[in-house]
Design a protein around this nucleic acid. Structure first.
Length: 508
RNA sequence: GCCGCAUUCGUCUAGUGGUCCAGGACAUCAGAUUCUCAGUCUGAGGAUCGCGGGUUCGAAUCCCGCAUGCGGUACCA
């Protein structure tokens, strides 16, 4: 009988800044895989590089997933039986594992100074070669393999700084089994003896990662493709420890929309779309990078869009909510090549989800936008405008941008529209139309419409010209829903005021 | 440079040897709705499947080579 290990996956970001959407997608895939298999989804913070720590980054990560509705079962901020979940807090436990590797011939102490190594690299570069710390060069460097036992003892006892490096066996073919890419093979002679343990007493990513994944009983490692080149090291490490390795899946990268290359921090503001889930203010420079939340995206739209960037359900369905994604997700359907982020498609997704959202939720967003602009209005009225206008809204801020004239009179009139639609005689027609509309008692949008039509036809006027100039008076531009809907909403009195004001402003 | 991964409409993708002179979505264009804009609906154009060799009766699908792109090559993750 096959006994399946419980599925446990982790998302393990480094708190070096805001979480980028590529990272969000990686987390999402981990989450979907975990939930589909009734597994655990863990948040681990990989902060072994103390020099790159950025204050606020950890809090940012937690808040981002809260906004997205992706919940962790265990980890930083939640707790669990495998803690602590922050590598800096696990510092004391790594040394013994590094020592184990040294004691068993899988690793060695190296005393080379950064300057000495830099010199070797430069030297090799001058000869158009690449310096590699490996089986062919170890003996010529300063380490416990080249030095005598006594010399090593003495250095260690005198407190000389040292690192611990992995000792690759020479000429060994290492195979990584990847769930997305199949078998990836590489020969150990091409690999560098990676530092596992730094001179500051912290493990590097490689050691900490393997130790933590093992002790946290991680069953599957789903991470970005940038880790594929170091996967052979990880495979070797599991072997060295005699541990069963988790299954690996290396995800394709998210590419920038123009040209090629990995999507980076700067692309967002350069190309006009967010690269981060939440807005981020750099604590040092004070620079602000935009976020999906602040730009008016709905979290479920972001999730849907991200899920489909590199994966598909195998059917033609595109609108898929989180619970359904959990059901449909499969690693087999993850693509192998990088995907370019597409702003237009993201916009389309957001529009779809705004149409799908229920009235109360949209009201919360709408009301929030109104407040931002110093407007407070009766809820029933706001809901009325919402029903009238929501299908035109792609992003939350448009709840104000597209509807402001329902709440405040226009103060400016789009010059292009005026030029095209405001002719000599327009003012006269508008006054006449206003009289006709006011004569409809009580006001009724259909009756008003018919009355205006009669006037227009009776005087052989151009419907388009008359209606559009009227629209300019009410809206300030050539846009918006049915004119009589607008009149019904803002009221006949306000309509009259706006008509007078337009005439005064445009024809002083 | 070296190593690894990838390569189907502008973009995201379907496709696992014949039903594919390649299907869907976004975008584009046209028509319809209309006082305007948006939305919606209908339709159209758009990929000789990176290139070159094989294997096979038959290849987008399998194999080899090349090209291009990306990733890695740190006491960063």
């Amino acid at each position: 009988m096959l006994i399946m290990k419980k599925v446990r996956v982790r998302f393990a970001p480094s708190p070096t800044g805001p979480l980028h959407i590529g990272g969000v997608r990686t987390a999402l895939y981990n989450y979907l895989f975990a939930k589909q298999n009734n597994g655990d989804f863990i948040l681990r913070i990989e902060d072994t590089d103390q020099t790159r720590f950025v204050p606020g980054a950890e809090e940012y990560i937690i808040e981002a997933f809260q906004w997205l509705g992706i919940r962790f079962d265990e980890g930083v901020g939640i707790g669990g039986n495998y803690g602590p979940y922050k590598q800096s807090e696990r510092k004391p436990m790594y040394k013994q594992y590094a020592d184990y590797l040294v004691d068993n011939g899988w690793a060695y102490y190296a005393f080379d100074t950064p300057e000495a190594l830099e010199a070797r690299r430069k030297e090799a570069e001058a000869q158009k070669k690449t310096f590699q710390y490996d089986a062919s060069t170890r003996q010529g460097l300063c380490n416990s393999l080249s030095l005598s036992k006594e010399e090593v003892e003495e250095k260690l006892n005198s407190g000389a700084p040292y690192v611990i490096r992995f000792k690759y066996p020479a000429n060994l073919d290492i195979t990584v089994h990847d769930m997305i890419r199949g078998e990836v093979k590489i020969n150990s002679n091409l690999l560098d003896d990676k530092v596992l343990y730094k001179s500051d007493g912290m493990p590097t990513y490689h050691l900490a990662n393997i130790v933590d994944d093992h002790t946290m009983e991680i069953s599957h490692v789903i991470r970005g493709e940038e880790w594929l080149p170091s996967a052979p090291l990880h495979v070797m490490l599991y072997q060295a420890f005699g541990w069963e390795a988790p299954r690996f899946a290396h995800l394709p990268l998210l590419l920038k929309p123009d040209g090629n290359g990995k999507l980076s921090k700067r692309d967002g503001d350069r190309l006009g779309f967010p690269v981060f889930p939440l807005q981020w203010k750099d604590p040092k420079s004070g620079d602000i990078s935009s976020g999906y939340r602040e730009s008016g995206y709905l979290p479920e739209a972001v999730i849907n869009m991200l899920a489909l960037l590199g994966w598909n359900p195998g059917t033609e369905q595109e609108l898929i909510d989180l619970p359904t994604l959990v059901k449909l997700f499969s690693i087999d359907n993850i693509s192998k090549s990088g995907a370019k982020f597409n702003l237009e498609k993201a916009k389309w997704f957001n529009h779809q989800y705004i149409q799908l959202a229920d009235e109360e939720r949209l009201f919360t967003y709408f009301d929030g936008e109104l407040r931002k602009h110093g407007v407070s209005a009766d809820k029933e009225y706001v809901l009325h405008v919402q029903r009238l206008m929501k299908e035109r809204v792609h992003f939350i801020p448009e709840f104000w941008e597209q509807t402001s004239y329902f709440f405040v009179a226009p103060t400016e009139y789009d010059p292009q529209a005026v030029k095209k639609r405001w002719k000599p005689g327009t003012a006269q027609h508008l006054r006449k139309m206003m009289e006709i509309i006011q004569a409809v008692q009580p006001f009724d949008k259909l009756k008003a419409h018919d009355a205006v039509m009669d006037y227009v036809q009776g005087n052989e006027l151009n419907m388009g010209a008359v209606m559009n100039s009227f629209r300019i008076a009410l809206v300030g531009a050539a846009k918006g829903p049915d004119l009589f809907e607008i009149i019904a909403a803002i009221g006949v009195e306000e309509t009259a005021r706006r008509v007078s004001r337009a005439i005064e402003t445009i024809e002083p």
